[in-house]
Amino acid sequence: MSRLMEQAIEKIRQLPESEQDALASIVLQEIESERRWEELFARPESSDLLSRMADQALTEAKAGRATPLDLDDR
């Protein structure tokens, strides 16, 4: 286990059980979400779909139908 994970777990142990359960639920959901994304991207049709989506985005940007992303505007 990484040092950072050990630090996080030590801090979590100091919290009330209900907060520990809430954090554990978030972590487990995130792990499952990552597993699902990896599974989806591993499919052969994913590459074709992503390529078509990228082409569509480029076409829309060239046609002036895209808005630049402003990371400072939050």
Rank of each mutant, 00 (worst) to 15 (best):
66 A>G: 06
52 R>Y: 10
15 L>A: 04
62 K>D: 15
42 A>V: 01
62 K>V: 15
22 A>T: 06
74 R>F: 15
9 I>V: 13
31 I>N: 04
19 E>F: 02
48 D>M: 13
15 L>E: 01
42 A>T: 05
52 R>E: 14
17 E>A: 14
67 T>C: 08
17 E>F: 06
32 E>Q: 13
33 S>L: 05
17 E>S: 09
57 A>P: 05
11 K>N: 07
63 A>I: 12
28 L>Q: 14
26 I>S: 04
34 E>K: 07
37 W>I: 14
32 E>D: 14
53 M>K: 12
58 L>R: 13
70 D>G: 12
40 L>E: 07
58 L>I: 10
56 Q>S: 04
44 P>H: 05
36 R>G: 06
33 S>T: 03
36 R>M: 11
10 E>V: 02
41 F>Y: 10
38 E>R: 10
46 S>C: 08
59 T>N: 13
30 E>I: 00
69 L>W: 12
8 A>Q: 00
19 E>S: 00
54 A>K: 06
14 Q>V: 06
4 L>C: 00
3 R>G: 09
13 R>E: 10
65 R>Y: 10
33 S>G: 07
67 T>Q: 15
44 P>F: 01
17 E>V: 14
47 S>N: 11
30 E>H: 04
28 L>W: 01
59 T>R: 15
67 T>W: 07
11 K>G: 10
21 D>C: 00
30 E>A: 08
36 R>V: 11
24 A>C: 05
59 T>K: 15
68 P>C: 09
28 L>Y: 08
71 L>A: 15
31 I>S: 05
34 E>R: 07
36 R>P: 04
63 A>F: 03
45 E>Y: 03
10 E>F: 00
54 A>F: 04
33 S>N: 08
54 A>C: 03
67 T>Y: 09
29 Q>Y: 03
68 P>W: 05
17 E>C: 03
48 D>S: 14
43 R>G: 08
55 D>K: 11
58 L>T: 08
37 W>L: 15
68 P>T: 08
38 E>L: 08
56 Q>M: 07
71 L>W: 13
51 S>I: 07
43 R>F: 05
3 R>S: 12
19 E>K: 01
35 R>L: 07
26 I>V: 13
41 F>P: 05
14 Q>G: 12
63 A>P: 05
55 D>Q: 13
38 E>P: 00
38 E>H: 08
54 A>L: 07
2 S>P: 03
46 S>V: 08
26 I>K: 04
22 A>M: 04
2 S>N: 11
49 L>I: 13
21 D>H: 06
30 E>S: 07
37 W>Q: 13
70 D>T: 09
39 E>S: 11
65 R>M: 12
56 Q>C: 01
8 A>K: 00
10 E>W: 02
58 L>D: 13
46 S>Q: 06
62 K>N: 15
5 M>F: 09
34 E>C: 02
17 E>M: 09
71 L>D: 12
36 R>K: 11
19 E>N: 01
70 D>I: 10
19 E>G: 02
5 M>R: 12
19 E>C: 02
20 Q>N: 01
36 R>W: 08
29 Q>F: 02
27 V>C: 04
23 L>S: 01
74 R>N: 12
63 A>K: 10
16 P>N: 09
2 S>K: 09
23 L>R: 01
21 D>S: 06
60 E>Q: 09
6 E>L: 07
15 L>Y: 01
30 E>Q: 09
65 R>F: 10
66 A>Y: 01
